[in-house]
């Protein structure tokens, strides 16, 4: 464990807890894309298949349970909670799941480290995580209103993967056999997707104006 990875995990943890806390306290999911949240639940499910088979560390297991629990709770809140669901903007959140899931699945079946079920699912989760934010970014551009909690959520989510890239660079130089180009490419694509959001986020923060994404 290196500082970049710990910082990345903590940033990721804070991002999902900020979102869960927001939904739980103000009982609203305005501006949040259910599609993205469902895709993240799928990412964690397909990535953590080894949760019960390979024990790596208490930290690893606890964090996996927290990510699984929080992502499914967020989906439950938006779908089932009698108050929260009323604030879900389903007419704007229309990104088709299969436009994202199918290409990632096909890509995982074509490009992977080993052709085993767990390995293909793990690779699928990497590709899926890279693009899972798209419905949320589309929704933000459509609704154009970004309350600061949602802005912070997306920012932290992007920051976590950027920290992971630093972790991969660090491990590449400190652990000789640590080469995982699939992880790296998916992680870089994911961070680049956030790049334009980062740009507008910093602009709004620097000029101290409300965050507006160009249509």
């Amino acid at each position: 464990m290196n500082i970049f990875r710990l910082a990345g995990d903590m940033t990721h943890l804070v991002s999902v807890l900020v979102l869960l806390l927001k939904i739980h306290t103000i009982k609203s999911c305005a501006g949040i894309s259910l599609k993205t949240q469902e895709l993240y639940a799928l990412v964690f499910t397909t990535r953590y298949l080894d949760l019960f088979t390979d024990y790596i560390s208490l930290y690893n297991t606890v964090m996996k349970l927290i990510f699984l629990g929080s992502s499914f709770s967020i989906v439950w809140y938006i779908r089932r909670h009698k108050i929260v669901r009323r604030s879900y903007d389903k007419d704007q959140d229309t990104f088709r799941h299969y436009f994202i899931v199918l290409p990632c699945l096909v890509l995982a079946l074509l490009i992977h480290h080993k052709f085993t079920f767990k390995e293909v699912m793990w690779t699928f989760s990497l590709y899926l995580e890279a693009v899972a934010i798209l419905p949320q970014l589309v929704l933000l551009q459509r609704t154009r209103n970004i309350d600061n909690l949602t802005g912070q959520y997306v920012f932290l989510l992007g920051a976590y993967r950027a920290l992971y890239i630093l972790n991969w660079i660090y491990r590449h130089y400190t652990e000789p056999h640590y080469v995982h180009w699939i992880t790296w490419i998916a992680g870089i694509v994911q961070t680049l997707l956030y790049a334009d959001f980062f740009y507008y986020y910093f602009q709004s923060w620097k000029n101290n104006v409300k965050l507006q994404l160009p249509a």
Binding site: D54, N60, H113, N167, T183
Partner: peptide
Amino acid sequence: DNPSVSKDEL
């Protein structure tokens, strides 16, 4: 073969 190390990541 060595279990791919990045499996110890989240």
